[in-house]
Design a protein around this nucleic acid. Structure first.
Ligand SMILES: [Zn+2]
Ligand SMILES: [Zn+2]
Ligand SMILES: [Zn+2]
Ligand SMILES: [Zn+2]
Lengths: 137, 137
DNA sequence: CCAAGTTTCGGAAACGGTTGTCATTATAGT
DNA sequence: ACTATAATGACAACCGTTTCCGAAACTTGG
């Protein structure tokens, strides 16, 4: 029993804890922040393992990744289907934006210039209603 | 005389060499690559100075910067006005794409979800016609 | 032209997020 | 349980970038 037919490797205590934590929020969070949170609640997990688990999850399409201007990666458990992200730059609260429209536009633009096999990186950063109400610029 | 009214500091040999090199191409290039190229043509410039110069130029809006998935920054002397970039992932040859359409779309989406002060990151990566003809995947 | 003040240079060291190493430990099929 | 195999995690390495700081190069006033 407890068969692993999901392409994610073994069900270890640590991975279950990371995935459980990712289920709890709509915010994008960094590997280091997730690690801190797990340690804070008494889960003895190594930072390396958190990075490894997030790598596996993102390779499997189970989590989405965005990169801040600083270079750090943020991870989030998202809904199915391609989409972009509207992320609050203060609290990282995120709304999913359906993707097809922009993707079509990108493919058309690329073809017009002779480029093929186009990929896009599009993220939107803003200040969410709550953070704006609290006066955060 | 020869006063510097351009907000870029002094016209030193090194800065002139960096800007001159940037004028020579339509490709985005990394600081390290620019440094190598200058040394290769006998210009004795330090890597630190190349980084500093590129920082100054990008702050002044004289060059555009994009970031590769690996995290390294690429720099290019671009035309005036806001635009996005369609970049060949093999040779970094770049076409400028007018920006207003996407920006309008982004602002509208953001407002619909209560987000304000929206900023976007959009780059297109593809394979250019030449590189495709040479069989690069 | 000279001296004093200011800016820039550049080698070396630090930085920060991420990835590799490898001996130890946990998992899952039998 | 037993065993083969995969995962863990403390630590070190990595890599592009930034900071430090003494030396060198400009600029300015006299
Ligand atoms: Zn998502
Ligand atoms: Zn917010
Ligand atoms: Zn540009
Ligand atoms: Zn190309």
């Amino acid at each position: 029993m407890a068969e692993e037919a999901h392409g994610l490797g073994r069900h270890t205590r640590q991975r279950l804890q990371v995935t459980a934590l990712l289920e709890e929020t709509d915010e994008f969070r960094s590997a280091q922040r997730l690690h801190e949170m797990l340690r804070a609640r008494g889960v003895p997990v190594g930072l390396t393992t958190v990075y490894r688990t997030l790598q596996i999850l993102s390779d499997a399409g189970e989590v989405d990744v965005i990169r801040l201007p600083s270079g750090e990666h943020l991870y989030r458990r998202c809904g199915a289907g391609r989409h972009h992200h509207l992320v609050c730059r203060h609290c990282a609260r995120t709304v999913e934006i359906p993707g097809p429209g922009v993707e079509q536009w990108a493919r058309r633009i690329a073809r017009q210039h002779g480029y093929v096999d186009v990929a896009q990186t599009l993220e939107l950063f803003g200040t969410c209603a709550d953070c704006a109400a609290q006066g955060r610029t």
